[in-house]
Amino acid sequence: MDIKEITRDKSLGMTIIVKTISRLIVSFILVFGLYIVLYGHITPGGGFAGGVILAISYVLLILAFGGKVAVAKMSGFWASMWDNLGALAFVVIGFLGLIGGYFFLNFINHGTPGKLISAGIIPLCNIAIAVKVGAALYAVFLALSIYGRISTEEDE
């Protein structure tokens, strides 16, 4: 089914009020999550907090429109894949440090403190962590929302 049809399907998800509000707010949450991730090294927040906020935007989709919309946007396969790639990126950054002589050495130019492009590998680590945490949290919520329903149907 096309994603637009699923979003218009009244039998899925919550009422139209919740759906409209969610549709408006999701993109703002996503952008705020990106902000928290990218500015993690100079303001409060970072990869984990930003990743959670990124995941929240998808979780809101699941809550408002039902699991199908979220799955159409990002399937369980890709959630798991991004989860792994984020973790892999983090470990790879650690291994790249070995070029400079130490595991997890901050081998990139540190730049001017306070600027967006600064702190060497820290923003890269933040991005990797955000991808990992965001995808993992989304996958967990997806699993709970999908499998939870199956088991209750069986119980009945």
Binding site: F77, S80, M81, N84, L85, A87, L88, V91, V92, F95
Partner: peptide, 11 residues
């Protein structure tokens, strides 16, 4: 690292 790579490659 291999814990993650194993999962990716298993796909």
């Amino acid at each position: 690292g291999m814990a993650v790579i194993t999962l990716i490659l298993s796909k």
